[in-house]
Design a protein around this nucleic acid. Sequence first.
DNA 1: TCTGGGGTCCTAGGACCC
DNA 2: TCTGGGGTCCTAGGACCC
Length: 465
Amino acid sequence: MTFEAFTETETDDEPRIILHVDMDCFYASCERLREPALRGEPVVVGMGYEAGEPHGAVATASYEAREYGIDSAQPISQALDALPRAADSATDPAGYYRPVDLAFYEDVAGDVKEILHSCADVVREVSIDEAYLDVTDRTSWGLVDDADGDAGSDDGGADDPRTIAEGYARHVKQRISREVGVPASVGVAPNMATAKIASDYDKPDGLTVVRPGEVADFLEPLPVAAIHGVGPVTERELAELGIETAGDLAAADPTVLADRFGERGRELVARARGDDDREVTPTGRPKSLSRESAFTEPTEKTEAKREQVSALAADVAARARSRDAMYQTVGIKVVTPPFDINTRASSLPGPIDDPDLVESIALELLEEFDDDPVRKLGVRVSKLSFGVRAQARLDGFAEASPGEAAANQGGNRAGTADITTAVDADTQLTDWVDDDAALAASQDTSREQPDEHDRDGQASLGSFD
DNA sequence: TCTGGGGTCCTAGGACCC
DNA sequence: TCTGGGGTCCTAGGACCC
């Protein structure tokens, strides 16, 4: 069937069929789901926003709200200037402001993801409102026989023949709309990079199909910024090289770009040419977990900073535990005026699950900034490992279910584990901690205890002035 | 644009090992 | 004690994305 000869640029075998599904102004759509009166109205969802207050930032603005110049990341106060609250008297253009309710959005996203997984063998969830699907085995690049085509005026090209894949994508889109009640834009292409751009091409509620033979033509006129991975900095630097469209970039010498941008430069050229052979791989485990929060105004107060860090540390440690994650590195982020981002991190000899240790390390790292005004603080754990506790408990049997693992956490060493037991456990479980590391570990245990300055300089360099 | 929160990946330089 | 080269791990910073 469908004997189309698309063999040109592709790697021997049949071109894949990748869908990129991107929910339109997802948070706002969710708010409309439970408050249908908001349909058709400008909706602004703010984080750090509370009803009636002016603080916070825009997380998502509906397309109606965007017409007033409201955009993501904008301060709420600024949005309010452009578009007053509907509740405030009878202003004419009026917006509906709602605080972020992530738990609810995750619920809705769960319903969407369920549909996606039923529509594809491999789904890569990129974020709460975005996913890639490899549907090569579910549909085809073949053309619809047609004759009964219902005059739909669709994607770009004048008299583009309809592909079977387009029908499939429409089906996915309609299921989301019908069964969940939120709009999505879908891009269909033979690779991830192009599918991503395609989903963005006709937002909201769009469906853009880029057939294998059309990729280069589709990309050519687009601005470089349309390419995933080209942000403001790269855009500017590319402009200096006279590269402004994807076509310019495609025509560029990869070696020249590699000189300037490293390996990334080479990759960008490939993307601009429509070459992208990355497989759609299922969503993996997180690499890090973090929590951060800003002060209403920069502060120098040591106590305030320490309190903030302690709270963030407790938070992030709790989240790690709830996800059954152990961590080996603890770090902080300190944003000082005007907007300088400083990070410090300290690694342990083995994975641990120990909220108190997260706090003490974070506080220690913070000492370097005792005298600095700080506008924002963050705490992060990384070098994560999963299922280690369950493994230890079950002694090599199958991993415990998350529920089991969670239920167990009150009990054994989890939670009370100090660094020594953690290292011991690690030594038993894995081979990679050799004697030297174990020795270092035993030295390291002293760091926690009384004399904080009695540690080998390595981890604490930052705290010496 | 004077800046919210949660992530990912890449690179450069230093420490350390063989 | 000096010298070489290769590899790995770690930290810090940067760019980017949603």
